[in-house]
Nucleic acid binder design. Structure first.
Length: 414
RNA sequence: GCGGGCGUAGCUCAGUUGGUUAGAGCGCCAGAUUGUGGCUCUGGAGGUCGCGGGUUCGAGACCCGUCGCUCGCCCCA
């Protein structure tokens, strides 16, 4: 740490950047609440086992990207790389199984030790929605609709595309997985180095390889659709019919796979081409086996997470905060009365800024530069008369207002 | 973890085949204007040239390492 610089892959949020994040979170909350979701906030670290048992040892996220450390009590803890596992842990340890179904929304920082890139940080932020205890496809449709409405509310409806797939239930998925292993094993000498590793860890990943040679092999690889059992097929059909009925467009993408191991049935991503390599803006799926896997009661689950930094790069600049009223004391004697007036106005709900130094010209200059809408000038003459001079910074019009009536007199500038 | 590009003032950048006091625009501060802002004019502050080492009489420039950013791979939100 030679110079004082932020840790690699971390970012300070200030000004418009902070406003973009806030806007995304508050938009998400507003839409999710309309869908009947309630807020949840879980710790940013958990016992390491929470993630290792749930995300699967085969996932890169857990096997080589977590921030894991031993605390002073000797416990192995891990900074959360995603929200779902923590929520599932909270569900089990909090005995929430009594209240099903449960619809939860949250947001916050996540941590992954990756090589930073545009749209990929080591500390990044997500909004997250989960529905627990609904094995029916209605939940899939509702959660997908929530995602679509959220992105729509951010003004991104036309800039993202929904890609949809099913992974089938556990049986279907396992059968298909085995079929892929059988198929690709015959071509081990032709597979890329990366795909060779995927072959035993996560063979479905080979399907979306970008390697030329791999792609040729993929063309004739077994199709997932052929390995779906009746139940899986019916389930997916209902999801699709639901989306059609709601007018939510999507494209089927048989090669869409989730990165984390616990997913089954519906999987989806909202993607964009505007962000380069990090095109996925929201990703989700169903995870009916997760909670049981963690030692809880068999409970269906489905949810998604969206990357706030990625969305922040796409949305239009959020509206700036309310334009302030600037209070400009003139002369020593006005300093304290100015403070009193500022406080009264703030307590009455106005946004008030004060110039801290300089002559009237300087203070007005600063006020207009910071976007103030009106300046209240307070000097010896005004104090003697019990008034302030109210200067509209857009029109330059000045009026005299009695200090006693100042809250109501400024109503137009609230 | 792999490969490519880039780091000069708060910001955007210039800086000749290596040459002595490193520049511009914008921004910032002050004055012109001690009770009136945006324009204008004048002046000023601000730089370990990312950091460390090497080559050289001499390095912002060349070489090596390192840190950071960035694009792609991988992975994923």
């Amino acid at each position: 740490m030679a110079a004082l610089q932020p840790v690699r892959g971390t970012h300070d949020l200030i000004g418009e950047e902070a406003r973009r994040h806030d806007h995304i979170v508050s938009t998400f909350k507003a839409v999710a609440h309309r869908y009947g979701f309630q807020d949840i906030s879980t710790p940013i670290f958990e016992f390491s086992e929470v993630f290792h048992r749930t995300l699967g040892e085969t996932s890169d996220v857990v096997s080589k990207e977590t921030y894991t450390f031993t605390d002073r009590g000797g416990e192995s803890l891990t900074l959360r790389p995603e929200m779902t596992a923590g929520i599932a842990r909270a569900f089990i340890s909090g005995g929430l199984a009594k209240d099903l179904p449960l619809k939860l929304c949250g947001h916050g920082p996540m941590f992954r030790y990756e090589r930073p890139q545009k749209g990929r940080l080591r500390q990044f932020h997500q909004v997250d929605a989960e529905v627990l205890g609904v094995p029916e496809p209605q939940a899939d449709i509702e959660v997908l609709a929530l995602g679509a409405d959220f992105l729509g509310a951010l003004g991104l409806g036309s800039r993202v595309e929904l890609k949809l797939n099913t992974l089938g239930d556990t049986d279907s998925r396992n059968n298909y997985r085995q079929a892929l292993i059988n198929y690709f094993s015959a071509y081990q000498d032709q597979l890329s180095e990366d795909s060779l590793k995927r072959l035993d860890r996560n063979p479905m990943r080979i399907l979306d390889s970008k390697d030329e040679g791999d792609r040729k092999l993929v063309v004739d690889a077994p199709r997932l659709h052929d390995y779906l059992n009746e139940a899986s097929r019916t389930f997916f059909d209902k999801v699709r019919r639901g989306l059609d009925a709601l007018g939510i467009g999507y494209t089927l993408d048989e090669r869409l796979v989730r990165g984390l191991d616990y997913y089954s049935h519906t999987a989806w991503e909202f993607v964009t081409t505007d962000l380069g390599a990090q095109g996925t803006v929201l990703g989700g799926g169903r995870y009916d086996g997760l909670i049981a896997l963690m030692g809880g009661p068999q409970t269906a689950g489905i949810g998604f997470a969206a990357g706030i930094e990625r969305l922040a790069m796409m949305i239009a600049p959020p509206v700036a905060p309310a334009r302030a009223i600037a209070i400009v004391p003139i002369g020593e004697a006005a300093e304290v009365p100015a403070l009193q007036i500022a406080r009264r106005l703030r307590q009455a709900g106005y946004t008030v800024e004060q110039g801290y130094r300089g002559n009237v010209g300087k203070r007005l200059e600063r006020a207009s530069k910071h976007g103030a809408r009106v300046a209240l000038l307070l000097g010896d003459d005004e104090i003697a008369a019990g008034t302030v001079k109210c200067r509209d910074l857009d029109t330059r019009a000045e009026t005299v207002v009695a200090i006693g009536q100042i809250e109501s007199a400024l109503a137009d500038y609230r």
